[in-house]
Structure formats: structure tokens, C-alpha cells
Amino acid sequence: MGINPYTPYPVTIKRVVVENEDKDIKSFELVFTNPEHEKAFNYLPGQFAEISVWGYGECPIGMASSPTEKGILRFTVKKTGGVVTTALHNLQPGRQIGVRGPLGNSYPVNEIKGKNIFIIGGGFAFTTLRSLLTYLIHPDNRNNYADITVIYGARSPGELIYKDEIALWQQRDDLNVYITVDKADEHWDGLEGFVPTIAEQVIKSWDNGVAFVCGPPIMIKFTIPVLLKAGFPPELIYTSLEMRMKCGIGKCGRCNIGPKYVCKHGPIFTFAELQQLPSEY
């Protein structure tokens, strides 16, 4: 971050990808206007940034790209009907917007070296997990980690995001990839069932693993017991939390859950940490 933590770096939208059938999830690939800014924007998977659309404001979005992907920054944004996400969805490549960050903590990519990795995601919340996965399987990093298992599900086949990449992941022999949908359609020949159910079938024991779980609250609620039953210690189950945010730097006072500020102490928390927090999120 620069001297002024409130001023964004100017970036240009290079490419926009519509990710789902409902067309309300788009990925934005951004390039920094100033190469110096790109250098300064030093991030790790799990962190987020405040995206500015001039005249509409800012909103926090997790980085979907990995720092190993040089030259671009990717965000996957769901149009909620709110002010900023709607404005962003109306923008075409070539337009300038702002990015302020990186903000928050990250997934513990160094601490988990040597471990078996379980990446469990649901819906469009797979964004920072994509960043993590891309980071872990980068040739420079892959050997630092043992087995990597990915369980990812969506409501329907049309709602799965990153479909092209999923196909590539499925072809790799150093990844165990399970893609599921709540409800299949006539073209779907993959798994059918909720993420927690698939997780229960796949994950039998802890086995020196560490789990990263992101998705709708209901999915998280039912996945965590599966992991605990398999023997995962609560300190090795990670999730990313969401609270309404503005400043992203622990000053505007709105994103706290008890004494913890999601923008500063989070957004990544372990289940053990969550157990210490009031259930006000």
C-alpha cells in the first residue's frame, strides 16, 4: 500500500469473462497502469482488495488470481444488485477502475508446507480458493505440498465457475478433483450431491491434512462437522469471513465480530478462532 491507504491504484480492465449461466458472476482481469504499483501490490492467496468504480464507490473483493500469475490481477464478482457490483458489471474492457490493497491476512501458504491439502468450496465463493490452488500447483510451489484434494460444488452445472480451468485441473494426475452439483441436468455426467455429502465420502481421516472451506454459510455449517468427525483439529480448518466493510484497514469500525476486525485480523480465520468469537456474523 502507498503512503495514503485510502487512494487506489489505477488499473485497466483487460478482459471480462462471464462465469455462469445466470450471467451475474463475471471475472475481471486487470492490469496496472503503472508498473511501480504492480510491484507494490504484493499479495498472497486469501487477501482481498477494495475495488473502486469512480462515482459509485468501493467494495471489498477477494483476489481470485494468484501472485504467481504475473501481469494480471483477477477478481470474480457477483452482481448483488448493490451499487458497486452493478456498476462494475456494466463496464467493458478498456475502462479504468481502481484497486486498493492488498488487504487482510492470507491463507497460511508457508505454514502448511508438507501437508495434505483439502480445498472445499461452494458456489461463487470459490474465488480465493482458486487463487490458493493456482498458487499451490505452480511449478515453483507444487513440491512443497503433499496431496491436494479439491471438492467444489454449485447449485447446477451452469453455476460452476472457472469451467475451463476445472477441466485442466481434472486432467492433472497430481490433483484429486471432485466437482459436484446440487442438481444435475441432462448434460451433466459428474457427481451429484451437496458439498458436505461429497466431502464426507472423500475425506475419511485427518491424515496430516489442512482444510480450506469457503462457500455459502449453510455449506460451511455442514462441512465443518464432517471435517471434525474425520479428526481435523479446529486449528487446521480455515475459512474466509464476510462482514460489511468500508475502509479495509481497521479504522471505520464496522466489520468487527467481537474484538476481531474481519478486514484486519481476517478475512481468514481458523475454526478454532471462530469458536472463540461471538456468533454475530
Binding site: Y6, W54, G55, Y56, G57, E58, R244, K246, C247, K251, C252, G253, R254
Partner: peptide, 28 residues
């Protein structure tokens, strides 16, 4: 010290302002 941040636009001109906000409001 709680505050909100908002963009205001006038023609080609945008200003980003911050202003007090408060945890006693539901919108917070």
C-alpha cells in the same frame, strides 16, 4: 471513530468522501 465512505459524482468530477457513521444504525 466509525465512518462510512461514499462517492459523489458531478459531471466528470468525482469526490470520495468519508463521514461519521454509527453502530446504533441498522444499516451499519
Amino acid at each position: 471513530h466509525c465512518f462510512d465512505i461514499l462517492d459523489e459524482k458531478k459531471g466528470n468530477y468525482v469526490r470520495r468522501i468519508r463521514f461519521w457513521d454509527c453502530c446504533m444504525y441498522p444499516y451499519f
